[in-house]
Amino acid sequence: MEQISPFKRLIASSLGKKYLMALTGFVLVGFVIAHMLGNIQIFLGPEAINTYASKLQNLPIAIKWGFRLFLLTAVAIHVWTAVLLTIENKQARPNNYADEKTVQASYASRTMPITGLIVLCFIIFHILHYTAQVIFDYKDLHYDLNGEHMHDVYSMMVLGFSHWWVSIFYIIAMGLLCMHLSHGISSMFQSMGWSNEKWRGVLKITAILIGAVLFIGFSSIPVAIMMGMIKPIIGH
């Protein structure tokens, strides 16, 4: 038999790919939770969120870019592995059933590739919109806090979500992301083998709850802006 290195064997195996999905998924879920907690500070007013954002922006460049690269790598591995898994899974059943039924698999579990793809498109748009700011320019928005000059993230969010199509796309993407996570979070524990009959039900409910809380947290921002509950700063 051909000798392959144990590392290649692990990565190329079906289980190896599942570990990669689970571990990168874990990193990304962690980021999404932290991001939501950061974002909802907008409800505390311009000072809170602008100070928080400026702290992040002023992190040492190595840490800031190191973290960005780390996340980007996690996304790349997650997406690439998902593509491989999806292709292999389609190939494993070349002829479909004439009468295809689902006994109990959740809708979320059966739509992971498509919800993932739409969320990926959203992430690209989202980074272009708020990070690279190439769709609308927010670079001139400034905020002064006791003489300290900082980027006005508060106004950027208010302006960004004042476009109805941005808000609608955002809310839909968050809905799909949270559906993706409602299967993903419990699935990653099963893939790593940290699940059993006793905990499986708890994990499933926890995953759905985390998904729901994230959806409410994220979507509340564009909803509040469109309903005029979060107002632009006077003078901007």
Partner: peptide, 15 residues
């Protein structure tokens, strides 16, 4: 051997 045979990958459907 399971992978080599061409079976798909488990995605935890539970079916």
């Amino acid at each position: 051997e399971m992978d080599r045979s061409g079976f798909g990958n488990c995605t935890n459907y539970g079916e």
